[in-house]
Amino acid sequence: MSKIQLECMSHTPLHGYFDPTPAVVEEVERVQRAARERVAAFDPELVIVFAPDHYNGFFYDVMPQFCIGVNATAIGDFNSAAGELPVAQNVALALANAALRSDIDVAVSYRMQVDHGCAQALDMLTGGINRYPVVPVFINSVAPPMASCRRARLFGDALGRFVAQMDKRVLLIGSGGISHEPPVPEIEGADAVVAERLIAGRNPSPESREARQARTVAAAKAFAAGDSHLHPLNSAWDRAFLDLLESGDVSAADGLTNDAITREGGKSAHEIRTWVAAFGALAACGPYDASIDYYRAIPEWIAGFGAMHARALERQHVAIA
């Protein structure tokens, strides 16, 4: 059995709030169950999850491009799992040092807050946010200016070269959307109230969080009804991206520029960086075999919803004490 496996899957905060037909929901849940069964059979000793944030844990007071959590708590937005993550602290710090040795500037956080973008993937794939030792890895995907896809791949590569030397079963998770553009506010042109929320909006009141979630649900209903200015889903672009990762040459993602991602996939399509980084880490462990498990454009969830899994075929093995 390969000691390095990968699961990448879109997430949505709208599941349970505004769903597509029961048949589509069951379709997605069937794919999720299969992924969870693969993870259970693999029984990882460590999980590294690459995830974005949606102005819940990271803000413009200091917005890193990459951050590794040394301690982390899930905030439980959109009814996602909440609580402390069992972070493998020594591994988290070792991964940060590995990235820095590879000339990738990465921040560390001893008080990371993660939202549904991280918690939903952990909960769905492993059966809970505290099932396995974990290292949460934040990749800025909504707050311009943003690092390139190439930089995200190189970041993943730096972490993957360290993982390749570990004598552990390691699960890599990429949690992010493909084409989608939910109503995430932007600091450019924002009024003073919105700007302050984007700069220092941690720990909002329950009423404020509820109002934000209600706006997202309302936007999804308008989008599904065809009455929205939000960027349309782009199935052709989504499938081309999935095919790129399946091909085994993740470096081809280097050509995806920020402007092109926004133009083709929408402003939140930048979350593909989480998939690129996860596959970059896997590729650093050697050739891999990947499978596209699912794709469907789901307007009710404002998401091109996809799922892939992969495993390393071979790698250099030098045990770390």
Rank of each mutant, 00 (worst) to 15 (best):
L154A: 05
A72V: 01
E314R: 06
Q316N: 15
Y110C: 13
P182D: 01
V114T: 13
G127R: 08
A253K: 08
A211E: 08
R202S: 12
P64E: 01
E186Q: 12
G160L: 01
R151F: 10
Q113L: 15
F42W: 03
V108Q: 06
G255E: 13
N234L: 01
C118G: 08
G189C: 06
Q113G: 14
A225C: 09
L245G: 07
F279L: 04
T126L: 12
H309Q: 06
L95T: 07
C67L: 08
G286Q: 04
G117N: 10
D105V: 15
P204I: 08
A152E: 04
R151G: 05
V28N: 02
V31K: 12
D191H: 12
I199Y: 10
V194N: 09
M9I: 11
Q316T: 15
G265M: 03
F66Y: 11
R263I: 03
E84M: 14
V49C: 11
L14T: 07
I292V: 13
E300Y: 03
Q120N: 09
P299H: 00
H309Y: 02
V49R: 05
A310D: 00
L313I: 15
L171K: 04
S251I: 05
P182W: 02
Q65Y: 03
E210A: 15
D43H: 12
P232H: 03
P204E: 00
G127D: 11
R153N: 14
H270K: 09
V276Y: 06
G255W: 11
E84G: 10
F223Y: 12
D123Y: 14
H180W: 02
M1D: 14
G248H: 10
M166G: 07
A307R: 12
P20W: 02
A99I: 00
H231L: 01
E84F: 12
G174L: 03
S148I: 04
M1T: 15
P136W: 05
R209N: 13
V49P: 00
A219C: 06
A98Q: 08
A211P: 02
F42Q: 03
A72M: 02
E210I: 08
Q65W: 00
S10P: 00
R209W: 09
A88Y: 04
S179W: 05
A72W: 00
V114W: 03
R215K: 15
R209Q: 15
L282G: 10
V91N: 06
I187D: 01
E29C: 06
N130F: 10
V91K: 11
S102I: 06
L282H: 08
G280Q: 03
A81F: 11
P287A: 10
E300S: 06
R38F: 06
S291K: 14
I302H: 06
R202L: 11
D103N: 14
D289I: 09
G201P: 02
L159C: 12
D19N: 15
R150A: 15
A34S: 12
A40S: 11
L159F: 09
D259P: 01
